[in-house]
Amino acid sequence: MRLIILYFIGLIFGVGISISGMANPARVLNFFDVAGAWDPSLAFVMGSALVVTFIGYRLVLKQPSPLMASNFQLPTRRDLDLQLIGGSAFFGIGWGMAGFCPGGALPALGTGRIEVLIFVTALISGIVVVKILKSIFSTRSLAQV
């Protein structure tokens, strides 16, 4: 039952991404191309997603706990570090090159288009390479201690 509910939550996200245009690189790139073929649609996506989430989170987080878990797992860090800013800057460069972001590309896999599969394979490679490098470096620094 729990997994069926979660499937439908994923489906709502996937339908939202699909009709919003976030799964369409041409539209995403045109949003950022103010100097060219500008299409402001994505500002409406971000705007309405933010309003709904802002209000919804306020109602939900007043509850003592989530319905299907013991507690809310919210990020607690508030510091700004190089990994956050450098990583975000890097993400933007890739987004500007390909036109897909992870949240747009994962639902777009459902269209069966080969370009989406190519992007997601490259995306997963990037994630895995960094995770492997991070684990090598953290074992090394532990070994030095």
Partner: peptide, 9 residues
């Protein structure tokens, strides 16, 4: 290249 950079970022 874009996909890989997004993954790293």
């Amino acid at each position: 290249i874009g996909g890989f950079i997004v993954g790293v970022g």
